[in-house]
């Protein structure tokens, strides 16, 4: 065996070599981001059923509770995605800060969108929101009244607290920004570019993120405006 073969033997495995590049980590972010975005859309469609009344909404929640063979794999995938998304973003944040140790005294954007430049802000705040959101509606430790079997009631009593609703709306605004850039950016990162489709993807990303924003915030607003009534 020659020395070169021996050297190849100790070379990094393919997957680590992939992960060691920024392009590889970005691809991981893109794929996990896409999974999370799909979940967000599914979650929104589920949530909007609240407008159909408590029976429909609680029924939907109950159905999910009775489908552990569906819910748990989804939860595992989501959990792994969140971990990988955050992990790669942290590693890339380190890379970013090392890549320019001394900043400019002045810097002016010449062509980037606000959304794209604020991914490192919107991401962590949305993550913090998700933690609170899970505490509030999944584990019942969010400081608002909680009944495991009455999801509808939990939402109503949760969003009756103005601070909770405002934080929710704020987080949704950031999520919208995050998705506006993320949804088209993931195509670019995964190497898809098309002179006609890419501008369409751009527009679609804006529309979808706005839809998500208005969809989600419609619930706390409707609750606060008493459009969605509590169960009497």
């Amino acid at each position: 065996m020659s020395a070169t073969v021996a050297e190849e033997g100790i070379q990094k495995p393919q997957v680590l070599r992939f992960w060691s590049t920024t392009t590889g980590k970005k691809a991981v972010m893109a794929v996990t981001g896409a999974i999370l975005a799909l979940f967000v859309i599914g979650h929104l469609i589920g949530n909007l059923q609240i407008f159909l009344g408590p029976d429909q909404f609680n029924g939907y929640a109950r159905a999910l509770r009775h489908l552990p063979e569906l819910v748990w794999p989804v939860r595992v995938i989501l959990f792994i995605s969140v971990i990988l998304h955050i992990w790669s973003s942290i590693e890339l944040a380190v890379t970013k800060s090392e890549a320019r140790p001394v900043g400019y005294t002045r810097w002016k954007p010449a062509g980037s969108s606000y959304a794209s430049r604020t991914m490192y802000w919107s991401g962590p705040i949305v993550a913090a929101f998700v933690v609170y959101h899970l505490m509030q509606f999944t584990f019942g430790v969010g400081g608002t009244p909680y009944n495991r079997l009455d999801t509808y009631g939990n939402v109503i009593s949760g969003f009756r607290v103005p601070a909770v609703s405002l934080f929710y709306i704020f987080a949704m605004a950031l999520l919208c920004l995050h998705l506006r850039h993320g949804l088209w950016s993931l195509f670019q990162t995964l190497g898809f570019y098309h002179p006609r489709h890419t501008p369409r993807i751009h527009r679609a990303a804006s529309l979808i993120s706005l839809f998500i924003f208005f969809g989600f915030i419609s619930i706390p607003i409707a609750v606060m405006l008493r459009v969605i009534p509590p169960i009497l």
């Binding site: 392009t23 062509g111 980037s112 969108s113 794209s116 430049r117 195509f187 670019q188 990162t189 190497g191």
Partner: peptide, 26 residues
């Protein structure tokens, strides 16, 4: 550093190189 597809590079490039090239690289 990494590319976050924000497009500052494309905006300042004196030769008008497009973000498309990054997508091709990816």
């Amino acid at each position: 550093g990494q590319c976050t597809n924000i497009g500052e590079c494309e905006a300042v490039c004196p030769k008008g190189i497009r973000l498309e090239v990054i997508s091709r690289m990816n």
